[in-house]
Design a protein around this nucleic acid. Sequence first.
DNA 1: TTGAAAGCGGTACCAA
DNA 2: TTGGTACCGCTTTCAA
Lengths: 345, 345
Amino acid sequence: MSGISDVARLAGVSKATASRALTGNGYVSAETRAKVQDAARALDYVASSNAASLVTGRTRNIGVIMPSVTRWFLAEVLEGIQDALLDHGLDLTLYDSRPGTTGRARIFDDFLARKRFDGLIAVGLEPQDNEIERLQAIDRPMISVVGDANDPGTISIDDRDAGRRATEHLIGLGHRHIAFIGGTEPHWAHWDRRRLEGYMSAMADAGLAEYARHIECDITLPGGYAASVDFLGDTKRRPTGLVCACDEVAIGAIIAARRLGIQVPSDLSVVGVDDHEFADVFSLTTLAQLPREQGMTAVELLLRHIADPSAPVPSVALPARLIVRSSTGPVDRASSAIEAGTRPR
Amino acid sequence: MSGISDVARLAGVSKATASRALTGNGYVSAETRAKVQDAARALDYVASSNAASLVTGRTRNIGVIMPSVTRWFLAEVLEGIQDALLDHGLDLTLYDSRPGTTGRARIFDDFLARKRFDGLIAVGLEPQDNEIERLQAIDRPMISVVGDANDPGTISIDDRDAGRRATEHLIGLGHRHIAFIGGTEPHWAHWDRRRLEGYMSAMADAGLAEYARHIECDITLPGGYAASVDFLGDTKRRPTGLVCACDEVAIGAIIAARRLGIQVPSDLSVVGVDDHEFADVFSLTTLAQLPREQGMTAVELLLRHIADPSAPVPSVALPARLIVRSSTGPVDRASSAIEAGTRPR
DNA sequence: TTGAAAGCGGTACCAA
DNA sequence: TTGGTACCGCTTTCAA
């Protein structure tokens, strides 16, 4: 393992000049630069990042904190972040902090305080009470993916709008009995709450507030499946349209419907949010978001913020794009038990 | 930001003593230790890991390199690794190196050479030609998850055995026309090749070699779906049993079967390998592996190796556990087109 | 059991 | 444009 002194010696210059030639900071003649670079290559020189960080205060490392890596959306964002960081030559330190684990507590109490990163990206974090203080105490540039676009440094889709447009899509197909599925009281996230609000306002605007109904479930495929098996079994109250908090829940609902012999979309239309990698296989109509791009955007915003901490940090609210597949279709009033009990308009 | 000198001053001791008290290396009286710890707490002292690493050569950071984080198995292993590392107070640097990307090339050419980690865990990496040399050049302890258990420092299930037992399960149910689905020529991984071998040997041992058939597909849910729609459509040649390279492929096959009106398991029995989080929702019979445990085991092996580099590094081959759900059942000879053309034994 | 002092491997200031 | 040198913050001899 040769150090910069070895490189300097071989190139016949001082350590200082070697450093300047290699980092590109300060004046070096083209000639000496070439000499130094040759020497470095000959010795397979790799700078010690510890030594460099110690004096510059820069780690060339970005921390990413998220509540899981096993959810499709989060994993996609993570890959977008990784790609962008690799392009910039920056390392990625992962803090996978599942709510309620001792690991999460340690991350907030110890790991973040070490500040082994120049900046932090929080993805879908939903910090609880004292975690927020910890985050603020870190005193490092930070960007959030998923969250309230009114907060500075937040990248997300307009969740309220997504919920609204998913609902309007079904209303446009003639549905009135439309339910929303997703979210449970202890575990509400910012985004599913917003999507529910969008659903509610679309229903209200269409004069369908009395038909609005919210079914709680875990925001996972098995969660959506379990809840759907329950409420779809009740034939009398079964809605004809279903707005789902996300695609994983929607796919769970579709699987449940099949198991119960309910045809999608003739008996039940289902719309999700995400454009999950499985959405196509399930022919799922959905409001697509691009998590990978969100991750890459987060990196760009963060690096800009690090480069110029005094500049205001923008937020980015991306629109979701409606992709119509065949899990939604016009309501079939004749064959619907719930419509049979409703007076026609 | 106070440093160790501040702590030392406040505690009324020297830097050296403060360091000893805080790190636990060297003799310090219980009394001074307490004094130093109090001072550290009072000042919210956090040691600079750069400074410490510079002198000790230890980074207290582990690198994890894997070809993706969006596959269920890999994400689960990653969370197992993260949990174990958090327990030990170690950071995790992620190198997500998707095959064929420029990012992957950079990881192998630049990032790994920086050695910003005390050890490396490679998960399902399948390094290609020159990548292997790069890996060896790193000269840091390394453990592999997924791979050949004959190589030292490898954790995996016995893939051959898993393929064999999945096949034997179907044979035991009376199936003879059993196909294997998964793996395509350019992208063979070590594990799906081994599972195919297990399938082949089970077929041969049961005298069913003539019925063996291998269907190629991408090792993903959409890949399994697409291939299945194709080959299940050919009623005359349709097998009654299907051994899948992994659960994602198996679930894709089940979805394809449903779409084609093929009943599972009465028309087609499907068995996978993994016990994916969706396996239960699809009632999938599978050979379960525990990726989270594999990740945690990898950390333990790696830390032991780092602590004592001269000790031999063991390998761990875990057995997969058969979980029978309702995607497999006895063959129904009467209703099977393919069986109709076969003489009974 | 403690303190003084020498680095770890770079960067950046200042003078030449 | 280059070289000498102090120093980043900590650990670790070595001597007391």
